[in-house]
């Protein structure tokens, strides 16, 4: 409301100024100072249908990751993860989130728990590209927040803090490893 009123006043003022001037010009170009002062959208809003998908777009494109995507949005991490990275994202499936105690997800999605949600999600992201073949038994990977995860490789099966890697999807700015459990910081 306030915004609208001020905007109108502002336009009106400009119009009056225009009338008061000796020069003929009363119009204001579309590109000029009347444009909104609201914040520009971040990198995730870049219109680009040609590039390979980034880690966010990979997750958005997966029907098994709607909870994760909702959480990433709630935590305001969409722009961060659309950055140049490079990122390794361990992406729990919807089923993985369902394993959490009842009400956990709903609670984390509440605005007052945003900071807790951020901590958990940032524990699923490492800066750097760790391809599957680069993961080794006993390897420690420092996550974006909340500490380290531990990789285990047994009989060719790779786990991260005990969660199984179900699939790996390369992205323009890194790689997404699909996992079957939510990683919880110690």
């Amino acid at each position: 409301m306030k915004f609208q009123t001020l905007f109108l006043m502002f336009s009106g003022a400009l119009f009056l100024i225009g009338l008061g001037q000796c020069t003929a010009s009363t119009t204001n170009e579309s590109t000029t100072s009347t444009s909104s002062a609201s914040a520009d959208p971040g990198q995730a809003a870049v219109k680009d249908d040609e590039s390979q998908k980034d880690v966010v777009k990979v997750a958005v494109g997966s029907p098994d990751h709607t909870t994760l995507v909702a959480a990433v949005k709630a935590a305001d991490l969409v722009d961060d993860l659309s950055n140049a990275g490079p990122f390794t994202v361990f992406a729990p499936t919807n089923a993985a989130f369902d394993l959490l105690p009842d009400g956990t997800v709903e609670s984390l999605l509440k605005p007052e728990n945003k900071s807790k949600l951020e901590e958990i999600l940032q524990y699923h992201v490492a800066v750097g590209v760790y391809k599957s073949e680069a993961l080794r038994d006993g390897q420690i990977i420092g996550m974006a927040y909340s500490g380290n995860v531990k990789i285990a490789v047994k009989d060719g099966k790779v786990t991260v803090n005990g969660a199984n890697i179900l699939a790996s999807v390369p992205a323009s700015n890194g790689i997404v490893h699909v996992i079957d459990k939510v990683l919880l910081p110690e």
């Binding site: 100024i17 020069t23 010009s25 204001n28 000029t32 100072s33 520009d40």
Partner: peptide
């Protein structure tokens, strides 16, 4: 004149 700045100003993120 007074409106010169407005006529050449392209807001951040807007195109020429």
């Amino acid at each position: 004149e007074g409106d010169a700045a407005g006529k050449t100003y392209v807001a951040p993120g807007k195109y020429d």
